[in-house]
């Protein structure tokens, strides 16, 4: 079931087109990656979803109906540029922002207690934000984003500024939120975390959506019939037997194990490849190589820039 849908969104700033005809569908309970080079229009799209801007054209749907103003109370948004009132005390600040999201004072207090205990930061309550370290205020920012129990979350570069321990902590929190039924839009330049976390992605370049879909489907779509095989034995025999049917792209030996990358030529199959190699050597692994999201990103964006 889809929780959010954007249809043919268009947004212009004067003569500059920030988004043209962008559509995307986010299904309930998934982590949706919003990718694209700097200046592609991601932030504009995120701000439109948060109703900070209204689109010039196009329609937004939330939970099956047209989006209304109060839907922002159900959304948690962590902007890329983090910000809190520097002179305000931690506890006061969190309560204030929670109440702006529509929580009553009692609910806000209760939720604050839950999250402060979970992150073990009760001791910070009366500190001013300007006295916190960067990592500490990032944690606080995360709490502010999720304190009102939103069912739809938008994280813009959530891991930036975190050390590996805290980054893992936040990643686990995001996954827990997802497991508890929240839907997450996740915008990042870190392709590693896209592969790790995202179910679906949308790639935006120069105001247009140039790629959308399931991460596995996309990878399958961009695979180029390359296999990686590792084995013990004589490389020359393998080389001879693959002649004309498969093209060996790469060969290396690491600690007595041969690694080769082969590209299939014509209509040969992976079974054929196996049967050609296995009589001569002892195979230790056999994988089809899928392109990394990083490679796909660069390939697709470069192709779209040339058009």
């Amino acid at each position: 079931m889809e929780i959010f849908k954007a249809e043919n969104i268009q947004k212009k700033y004067g003569n500059f087109s920030a988004l043209s005809d962008v559509s995307l569908t986010v299904s309930q309970g998934c982590i949706y990656g919003l990718l694209g080079p700097n200046g592609a229009g991601k932030t504009t799209l995120i701000r439109i979803i948060n109703q900070i801007f209204a689109p010039d054209k196009g329609e937004l749907y939330y939970k099956g109906r047209k989006m209304i103003a109060n839907d922002v109370l159900d959304i948690g948004y962590l902007p890329e540029e983090r910000g809190l009132y520097k002179k305000m005390k931690v506890r006061e600040q969190v309560l204030y922002l929670a109440r702006l999201k529509g929580l009553s004072r009692t609910d806000a207090n209760e939720r604050l207690k839950y999250w402060f205990e979970k992150f073990e930061i009760m001791g910070w309550s009366d500190k001013k934000v300007e006295d916190l370290s960067k990592g500490m205020s990032q944690k606080l920012q995360f709490i502010v984003t999720v304190i009102h129990n939103p069912t739809f979350l938008i994280f813009d570069e959530p891991f930036s500024g975190f050390d590996p321990i805290n980054a893992t902590l936040i990643r686990d929190e995001i996954l827990e939120l997802r497991d508890n039924g929240a839907t997450i839009i996740f915008s990042t330049h870190n392709m590693g975390s896209v592969e790790e976390l995202c179910d679906n992605i949308s790639l935006i370049n120069k105001s247009k959506c140039i790629l959308e879909g399931d991460v596995h489907d996309i990878k399958k779509h961009f695979k180029s019939d390359i296999y990686e095989v590792s084995f013990h034995g004589d490389f020359t025999k393998v080389k001879d037997s693959l002649h004309l049917k498969f093209d060996i792209l790469e060969h290396k030996i690491v600690r007595d194990i041969n690694y080769i990358r082969v590209k299939m030529l014509n209509q040969h199959t992976d079974n054929e490849l196996l049967s050609l190699i296995s009589p001569h050597v002892h195979i230790t692994s056999f994988n089809e190589v899928f392109p990394s999201m990083n490679e796909i990103f660069i390939k697709v964006v470069e192709a779209s820039n040339q058009n």
Partner: peptide, 18 residues
Amino acid sequence: IEEKSSRIVEVIISSVKP
């Protein structure tokens, strides 16, 4: 200016209208 330069403003206007 304080709200703008501390960037809190984006957090707030995702809850309330500017």
